[in-house]
Design a protein around this nucleic acid. Structure first.
Lengths: 226, 226
DNA sequence: GCGTGTGAAACAGTTCACAGCA
DNA sequence: TGCTGTGAACTGTTTCACACGC
């Protein structure tokens, strides 16, 4: 049922997440169908872009009608893999790690935190706010727990200096994907998926934009429309 | 001193942040110069890419020598605007908001949290862990505080349902940029910079990658090198 | 008529390859 | 010789425009 093996532009995959979210909002609002034009308008994309993107993943539009909201939601969830449950482990229970452990969004996307680890042995065996039946484990337990519980994903929220060694541990223990929050470029084998949330980069993008807008404003005065 | 107004590829701006981080690591290690080849190797980019990217922002390389680490760091920080201090406000003190308020990375990039707001009036006037001299304010105080304290950046960590109205408040109050953590596509005027950290998207990208790697592995068995 | 799916054209970004300077 | 900066070639992505189905 999954059509093309490769050849899908990476930007299209990222946009797929945005389409899903918008479609879910439409479904909550009770809309049955949506056109590529409406969908694009809500997300700041052209209608052609929306159609081309969705067509990469299969033909789930209906000529003259548009896209049936819940039909597409179902397909997209399947394509993204969020219709399954992924057992995941979180490493590093600092402030960010604790906030993430209690974050509802993981569950919503099928990520189930079944184990958490921290290097601080004093934290060992403590429960974790927001997680039922999970206690903090020492790093020494990582390999065995990952293997025993068949954990497929690792979430890294340790300081940058330790992130690569934690990633290596996770990879050796057998995870198939890593979500990295440490501000450093990790190296993992090509067989392991890697996705990063890089706060420092986002902060810098923002200040760059503000900076260049100020510069632009100095050059030309008036500007309007769109 | 700032060369080209526009025409710099957006991906190049994002990579600039990565260069900066790597250069900072080199500086800590005491390296005085670095070639585009070394820099690229550490970040998984080609040497040509590195040279072209840095050249977009000015000519700070030295033929035969490479790039002088602290010279480039200084330039890049100036370009990104992280050599200044940006007064910022955070809205929404849930778990994520609290974790971010205590996050050291903001200060490091010149973001100074001088005010925090929350819709829950019971939280009003409480101090915030990790922030000196800052107390939680009610939403009603937002407009006046932003204006009085000349706050330029807003950080949104409220639930998705409230994010757009908070963004509108911030924009009306006069912020020049918004960092959004709520999982929703915000609409802001073109004169306001917007940068988003979207956890749901990252989770989905990760599960998509793991999914497609599994698919790919099923198709072909062996594969090696690089 | 409305709205999708899709080749073809246009555009953007990356890689190549080399001239030129220290 | 070592290494940058950059036009030219190439690759990837987006936009355009239209044939076809409801």
């Amino acid at each position: 049922m999954s059509s093309k093996p490769e050849s899908i532009p990476l930007p299209a995959v990222r946009r797929l997440s945005l389409y899903l979210r918008q479609l879910e909002a439409l479904a909550r609002r009770g809309d049955g169908t949506v056109s590529s034009k409406e969908l694009g308008l809500a997300l700041g994309l052209s209608d052609a872009q929306v159609r081309k993107d969705l067509a990469y993943f299969g033909q789930f539009g209906h000529a003259g009608i548009g896209y049936r909201v819940d039909e597409v939601i179902r397909h997209v969830r399947h394509i993204l893999g969020t219709d399954k449950t992924w057992p995941a482990a979180l490493v590093g229970l600092g402030r960010l790690g604790q906030a993430l452990a209690a974050y509802g969004g993981f569950v919503e996307k099928g990520f189930q935190l079944v184990a958490v680890f921290d290097a601080d042995v004093k934290k060992a065996d403590r429960p974790v706010a927001g997680l039922r039946d999970v206690r903090i484990q020492a790093m020494g337990a990582l390999a065995k727990t990952i293997a025993d519980r068949q954990i497929l994903l690792g979430i890294i929220t340790v300081p940058a200096a330790h992130a690569q060694s934690v990633a290596d541990l996770l990879v050796d223990a057998g995870v198939r994907g890593i979500l990295n929050f440490a501000p450093i470029a990790l190296t993992v084998p090509k067989t392991v998926a890697l996705s990063s949330v890089d706060l420092a980069v986002q902060l810098e993008q923002l200040s760059f934009q503000v900076n260049s807008m100020r510069d632009a404003a100095l050059r030309s005065s008036g500007e309007a429309d769109t």
